[in-house]
Simulated assay, not measured.
Amino acid sequence: MANRLRGEIDAMLDGRRWTLVLTLGALAELEAAYQAGNLAELTERFSTGRLSARDLIRIIGAGLRGAGNAVDDDHVAAMTAAGGAAGMAAIAADLLQVTFGGEAEPENP
């Protein structure tokens, strides 16, 4: 069970429950991917609410790896979630919310 106070969420991907967390290492991975100089730049990028499919893959992948799961972005790109792309967007939004925006109610079990 994920501990939202530690920035963790649970998500159903490919019919399996996974834990995701954006650790400092995962955030550094995202900074490098987006060539962001700091967390404020990264937060600003994600705060627009306009995330591409590639963004979703990177965010979910970094969260999975942050929680210790051995998956690469190609594996994440092939994963499915209830609701399709909207379900993946809800997972990424929940992860970003718990990481940067404090506690929020989970949108996906």
Rank of each mutant, 00 (worst) to 15 (best):
residue 2 A to K: 14
residue 3 N to G: 04
residue 4 R to F: 03
residue 5 L to I: 00
residue 5 L to V: 01
residue 5 L to Q: 06
residue 6 R to M: 07
residue 6 R to Q: 05
residue 6 R to V: 00
residue 7 G to R: 09
residue 8 E to V: 01
residue 9 I to E: 01
residue 10 D to Y: 03
residue 10 D to T: 07
residue 10 D to Q: 08
residue 10 D to V: 04
residue 11 A to D: 00
residue 12 M to N: 05
residue 12 M to R: 09
residue 12 M to H: 03
residue 13 L to N: 02
residue 13 L to F: 12
residue 13 L to I: 00
residue 14 D to F: 13
residue 14 D to Y: 08
residue 14 D to H: 08
residue 15 G to V: 09
residue 15 G to W: 14
residue 16 R to K: 14
residue 17 R to C: 03
residue 17 R to A: 14
residue 18 W to G: 01
residue 18 W to A: 06
residue 18 W to P: 00
residue 19 T to S: 06
residue 20 L to H: 02
residue 20 L to N: 04
residue 20 L to D: 05
residue 21 V to Q: 15
residue 21 V to T: 13
residue 23 T to D: 07
residue 23 T to S: 15
residue 24 L to V: 12
residue 25 G to I: 14
residue 25 G to P: 15
residue 27 L to S: 08
residue 27 L to T: 05
residue 27 L to N: 11
residue 28 A to Y: 08
residue 30 L to Q: 06
residue 30 L to I: 01
residue 30 L to D: 03
residue 32 A to S: 14
residue 34 Y to N: 04
residue 35 Q to S: 14
residue 35 Q to G: 14
residue 36 A to I: 01
residue 38 N to D: 15
residue 38 N to I: 11
residue 39 L to P: 13
residue 39 L to D: 15
residue 40 A to V: 15
residue 40 A to K: 07
residue 41 E to F: 13
residue 42 L to R: 08
residue 42 L to P: 12
residue 42 L to S: 03
residue 43 T to S: 08
residue 44 E to S: 12
residue 44 E to N: 10
residue 45 R to A: 12
residue 45 R to P: 08
residue 45 R to W: 05
residue 46 F to M: 04
residue 47 S to R: 05
residue 48 T to K: 13
residue 49 G to Q: 09
residue 49 G to M: 07
residue 50 R to M: 05
residue 51 L to D: 02
residue 52 S to C: 10
residue 54 R to K: 13
residue 54 R to Y: 04
residue 55 D to S: 10
residue 55 D to I: 01
residue 56 L to A: 12
residue 58 R to V: 01
residue 58 R to N: 08
residue 59 I to M: 10
residue 59 I to A: 06
residue 61 G to N: 04
residue 62 A to L: 06
residue 62 A to C: 05
residue 65 R to Y: 11
residue 65 R to F: 04
residue 65 R to D: 01
residue 65 R to I: 01
residue 66 G to A: 07
residue 68 G to K: 14
residue 68 G to P: 07
residue 68 G to I: 00
residue 69 N to F: 12
residue 70 A to V: 13
residue 75 H to P: 02
residue 75 H to Q: 07
residue 75 H to D: 02
residue 76 V to A: 12
residue 78 A to F: 06
residue 79 M to V: 14
residue 80 T to S: 15
residue 81 A to Q: 14
residue 82 A to S: 11
residue 84 G to T: 03
residue 84 G to Q: 07
residue 85 A to D: 02
residue 85 A to K: 15
residue 86 A to K: 12
residue 88 M to H: 14
residue 89 A to V: 00
residue 90 A to W: 00
residue 90 A to E: 04
residue 92 A to H: 04
residue 92 A to V: 06
residue 92 A to N: 06
residue 93 A to E: 13
residue 95 L to K: 06
residue 95 L to M: 11
residue 95 L to W: 02
residue 96 L to G: 07
residue 96 L to H: 05
residue 96 L to I: 10
residue 97 Q to A: 15
residue 97 Q to E: 06
residue 97 Q to R: 14
residue 97 Q to D: 10
residue 97 Q to M: 07
residue 98 V to R: 05
residue 99 T to W: 09
residue 99 T to G: 09
residue 100 F to R: 06
residue 101 G to Q: 13
residue 101 G to L: 12
residue 101 G to S: 05
residue 102 G to S: 10
residue 102 G to Q: 08
residue 104 A to V: 08
residue 104 A to F: 09
residue 104 A to E: 03
residue 105 E to Y: 03
residue 106 P to R: 09
residue 107 E to F: 04
residue 107 E to N: 11
residue 107 E to H: 02
residue 108 N to H: 01
residue 108 N to G: 11
residue 108 N to M: 05
residue 109 P to R: 06
